[in-house]
């Protein structure tokens, strides 16, 4: 995506949504999944991803789990109960925001 500032504010919601769907994911997997779903349009760098993950963990929305994978240990992130509730709220907020933006930018094709 040309202007990364446009999605920066939604990064936490994107992470929560992915974890809600996938159950548990590790850092690199999140970056790849976003790339895949957005057909390469969104590229979350590790410099943006990990601060976001740590912030969500600090807020009590994410829990971590360490598992042995191949020759190393892997840290998985998953939603806490509070995280599950917060995901619903944040998705609703994001949808409202997108709807408002659509109405502002192009009133003829706003989301129903």
């Amino acid at each position: 995506m040309g202007n990364s500032k446009l999605y920066k504010g939604s990064l936490n919601t994107i992470i929560l949504k992915l974890l809600d769907e996938e159950g548990k994911m590790y850092g690199y997997e999140i970056t790849q999944k976003v790339k895949e779903l957005s057909k390469g349009e969104l590229n979350i760098t590790e410099g943006a991803l990990y601060p976001a993950l740590h912030k969500l963990e600090a807020e009590g929305l994410l829990d971590v789990e360490v598992a042995k994978v191949d020759n190393r240990l892997r840290k998985y992130y998953k939603l806490t109960k509070q995280g599950e509730k917060e995901t619903v709220n944040r998705l609703a907020e994001l949808e409202d925001f997108i709807r408002s933006m659509q109405q502002l930018v192009n009133p003829d094709w706003s989301i129903q």
């Binding site: 590790y26 850092g27 690199y28 997997e29 990990y50 360490v66 190393r72 240990l73 892997r74 840290k75």
Partner: peptide, 14 residues
């Protein structure tokens, strides 16, 4: 180190 190592290893594998 665990977290950084996992990220770097995953990226390198890909």
């Amino acid at each position: 180190r665990l977290e950084i190592l996992d990220h770097l290893a995953s990226e390198f594998e890909n």
